[in-house]
């Protein structure tokens, strides 16, 4: 600002004005490049490990790259591309079931846990005794920070058949419900959603509670003075204030759930019935990377992945439209001085 003023006032000598103007344009160039120097590291990493791989995955999805021809097949040559993989996917007789499973899984887990439960915990724990609230949140963070293998093992113990299983032993048994079967076999979906939901809830819980804590205390005090009930305070003061984290969590967690498979793999591995709990990401993993006999078809697996990515992008775009993304990323105030 200072410098600009000086040059505007200027007029000390033609030469110095010229020099100053030169410098100014250089610094302007610098100013224009500055954002990109800040972005450079992220751009390099994202290009290397997201964009290039993405292009490759897209190409691979048209090839027959697998464990036998890896290192031999020239997958980058168009002569080796075909639509066969996609034909295979859409003629697969389990395709509708897998798609349906995925949608049900994402919708239910998101609604009940990643958003619903998260909001409930955040609201309750920020409105009760601080220490108790903290204890609850700490408890809900445990599923996320526990090694997946151990976490799933814990759920299998919960769902186990009588007399080993905890739910059967202490809940269903005394109530006389069921005959002590392995609950993962009798109601696999309930557990798939519970297992993922308990991990997913913590993400929203943290964002929501920190957003609620950030609301100035005067707001709720004022509404209490006005005689509003807690419910009304929540409904009319708190909820509108956490609109943005709410939208962010919904979008981000939809995508997270779409691409998650590890817990399901360890829990039911798509079973117990044929493709009963198999979701799209799990199929992609099964085809591309592993199976009991090393069923490793990278090309075919990539095609499954590409379809999933398309679904994900469509959902992301819809969310961004619905949630008026443009407003969220309003232009920065400080740029030119």
């Amino acid at each position: 600002m200072k410098r600009k003023k000086q040059s505007e006032e200027g007029g000390i000598s033609p030469l110095s004005t010229f020099l100053k103007a030169k410098k100014w344009s250089f610094s302007r160039l610098q100013g224009r490049l500055a954002p990109y120097t800040f972005l450079a590291p992220a751009l390099i990493v994202i290009t290397l490990f997201f964009f290039i791989p993405l292009v490759i995955v897209f190409i691979l999805s048209f090839t027959k790259l697998d464990i036998t021809n890896f290192g031999i097949l020239e997958w980058w040559r168009p002569a080796n591309w075909s639509l066969d993989n996609y034909v295979k996917i859409f003629t697969n007789r389990f395709f509708p079931r897998i798609l349906g499973n995925t949608l049900v899984y994402v919708a239910l887990t998101l609604a009940f846990f990643n958003v619903g439960m998260a909001l409930l915990i955040a609201l309750i724990t920020t409105h009760i005794n601080r220490r108790v609230g903290f204890a609850f949140r700490a408890l809900w963070l445990l599923p996320r920070i526990t090694p997946v293998v151990v976490y799933i093992m814990m759920w299998k113990a919960l769902a186990g058949p009588a007399p080993m299983g905890i739910i059967n032993n202490y809940l269903l048994g005394p109530l006389g419900i069921g005959s002590g079967e392995y609950l993962l076999n009798t109601s696999p979906w309930v557990f798939v959603i519970l297992v993922n939901g308990f991990i997913g809830a913590s993400f929203g819980m943290i964002l929501f509670s920190s957003a609620i804590e950030a609301i100035p205390k005067e707001y709720s005090t004022a509404s209490k003075v006005d005689g509003a009930t807690t419910w009304q305070t929540i409904r009319y003061i708190v909820l509108p204030m956490i609109k943005w984290p709410f939208l962010f969590v919904t979008t981000y967690q939809t995508l997270s759930l779409l691409t998650s498979f590890e817990q399901i793999m360890l829990l039911t591995d798509g079973g117990p019935g044929l493709y009963q709990t198999e979701v799209w990401a799990l199929t992609a993993y099964h085809r591309a990377l592993t199976s009991y006999f090393g069923n490793i078809q990278w090309g075919y697996g990539s095609a499954w992945a590409v379809v999933l990515v398309v679904i994900g992008i469509i959902m992301a775009i819809i969310y961004l439209r619905v949630f008026k993304f443009g407003e969220l990323v309003q232009e920065p105030k400080i740029d030119r001085l």
């Binding site: 954002p35 972005l39 994202i46 290397l48 490990f49 997201f50 290039i52 791989p53 993405l54 292009v55 490759i56 995955v57 691979l60 790259l65 979008t251 981000y252 995508l255 997270s256 779409l258 691409t259 498979f261 990401a281 992609a284 993993y285 591309a288 990377l289 990278w298 697996g301 990539s302 499954w304 992945a305 999933l308 990515v309 994900g312 992008i313 959902m315 992301a316 775009i317 961004l320 993304f325 443009g326 990323v329």
Partner: peptide, 26 residues
């Protein structure tokens, strides 16, 4: 700027597992 922001969000739509083989090439 805006496209970069929406892009970072959309990147999240890519299942890490299926990018493993391309990342290996990189």
């Amino acid at each position: 700027r805006k496209s970069f922001l929406s892009l970072t969000l959309i990147l999240h739509a890519f299942p890490s597992v299926t990018l493993l083989i391309p990342i290996y090439f990189v």
